[in-house]
Design a protein around this nucleic acid. Structure first.
Length: 130
DNA sequence: CGGTTGACTTAAG
DNA sequence: ACTTAAGCCAACC
């Protein structure tokens, strides 16, 4: 197979938007930050929003996370919760309980759909990436 | 093009 | 701790 087989790879690390586009967008930035979340730590949608410079576009982060399941490489969307540590996105996983199990598997305690000691487990991209 | 929706956030009562 | 309200922005119809 000495033929030039360039297609097939070309390192398409760009995330796939809902529209199927792989253009640069805030989605790219969101996924990029989300992948930086250390194991056993969590962050919030708003924190990511600030990290990418949008600040108040936390809802877009949530939107992007809903697409995280179809994005490559995999995005640890289970490590992203809302501002009070609530697993607001658990319903988007295979099973509503899958998100909690993933977190517990990483050492994050979850009680009543809420991250235990959230403030300590919180990972601030603005400070950690700085 | 416009109204609605959503894995959000902050503020105020 | 709970409810309301307003701000935000991309996708959807």
């Amino acid at each position: 197979m000495s033929a030039t087989k360039k297609s097939n790879n070309e390192a398409r690390l760009k995330p796939v938007r809902p529209s199927g586009k792989t253009d640069d967008s805030i989605f790219d930035l969101i996924y990029a930050v989300a992948r930086q979340i250390p194991k056993g730590r969590v962050t919030s949608y708003g924190a990511i929003a600030k990290a990418i410079g949008s600040g108040k576009s936390a809802r877009i982060v949530g939107w992007a996370m809903s697409n995280a399941g179809r994005v490559k490489p995999k995005v640890p969307a289970h490590r992203v919760v809302n501002s009070v540590g609530l697993l607001s996105g658990k319903h988007a996983f295979k099973t509503p309980n899958y998100m909690q199990e993933l977190l517990e598997k990483e050492g994050v305690q979850v009680k009543n759909d809420k991250v235990v000691d959230f403030k300590t487990r919180f990972w601030n991209p603005l400070e950690e990436l700085f």
